[in-house]
Amino acid sequence: MANVNVLLNLFIEYLQMEKNYSQYTIVHYQHDIREFFLFMAEQAINDVETVQYSDARLYLTKLYDKKLSRKTVAKKISTLRSFYKFLLREKYVVENPFALVTIPKAEKRLPNFFYEDELQILFRTCETDTPLGERNKALLEFLYGTGIRVSECCQIRLKDLDFYLSTVLVHGKGQKERYVPFGSFAKDSLEKYINNGRKKLLEGKERIEALFVNHRGGPLTTRGVREILNKMIEKSALDSRIHPHKLRHSFATHLLNKGADLRSVQELLGHSFLSSTQVYTHVTNEHLRKTYMSHHPRA
């Protein structure tokens, strides 16, 4: 029987080459599988082939004993199911012990979003009299105006923008590409930042392709975006917490509230499955319910 680390390396190679998973995802897969290897050692299980359904159930119980959230447990079990599915395909095992393990349902949380008046306050707090201020305003307008993920935003290059058509080429998950339109507010802020603020931030530094740059002239990172947005919230005095995805949630929710169809929103967000987009219908339905209860005389 092959060494467990050899099998893990083969699986990681498969995720990289065939599935095109990001390095971030792969690191989490490795961590979850190595955790299971430790469990195997504790149970004196010598190789992956001898793991049985009862062992998988025991591992599930031990994950619950650690007081992990149901979502975290579900992800770990899903990782191991995928690992064994790969081993089964490559004929290293004859059955998948995790195939019948019931994954606990994750708690359904409605996406958190900004109301339109809250966003107006946030936009007004942007100071545009400095290069960094111009960048921050453009960043905020661009994230809300396109609904793209922050990781996607940080990969946008100048050449990905088409100001004539007001579209941007987005490099999404799994090396999927899509074109996303942006509106006049985002366009104006982007043009001002590119023609002025960005040039000043890059003065005396090596030219780079990234659209958004930091104060040192390097590409802006996802962590940098979070810090910028947090500072904006502090300045605005809004009684609200912000995370980059909240702007994406706001983008989708506001489109649906204004009558956009679900399929179009799915395409704009880059969701592979409509079920991922349907969560926003719950938000808009709840918004409609609250509006009804607040205004209907017989509510």
Rank of each mutant, 00 (worst) to 15 (best):
K76Q: 15
R226P: 03
E13V: 04
F114A: 06
T167W: 09
D65Y: 04
Q43F: 08
E13I: 07
Y164P: 00
H295N: 13
L158P: 00
C154M: 03
K231Q: 15
L220M: 12
G133N: 10
H215A: 01
H287C: 08
E95R: 00
N195E: 11
H28Y: 11
D239I: 05
Q43N: 13
H249N: 09
V180A: 11
V27F: 04
L288C: 02
S275T: 15
R241A: 13
V150P: 04
K192T: 12
T72S: 15
K192M: 08
H271E: 05
R149I: 02
F36T: 05
H249M: 00
N112L: 11
V170H: 02
N9S: 14
A237I: 10
F185Y: 13
E134K: 15
R81I: 02
G145M: 06
G217K: 05
I121A: 06
Q16L: 14
K67W: 05
D239S: 14
S294D: 14
L262C: 06
N20T: 05
T130L: 02
Y164A: 13
S78H: 07
L100H: 15
Q30Y: 10
E203M: 01
R149T: 03
L63G: 01
T130A: 00
V283F: 07
Q266I: 07
L165G: 11
K235E: 12
Y29P: 07
I26F: 11
H254I: 10
N257Q: 15
M293Q: 14
E177W: 08
A260P: 04
I33H: 09
R248A: 09
G218S: 05
S276V: 01
Q23A: 10
F182W: 06
C126I: 08
K187T: 12
F83V: 06
D117S: 15
T128H: 08
F37G: 00
H282L: 05
S54V: 13
R89V: 05
I103W: 01
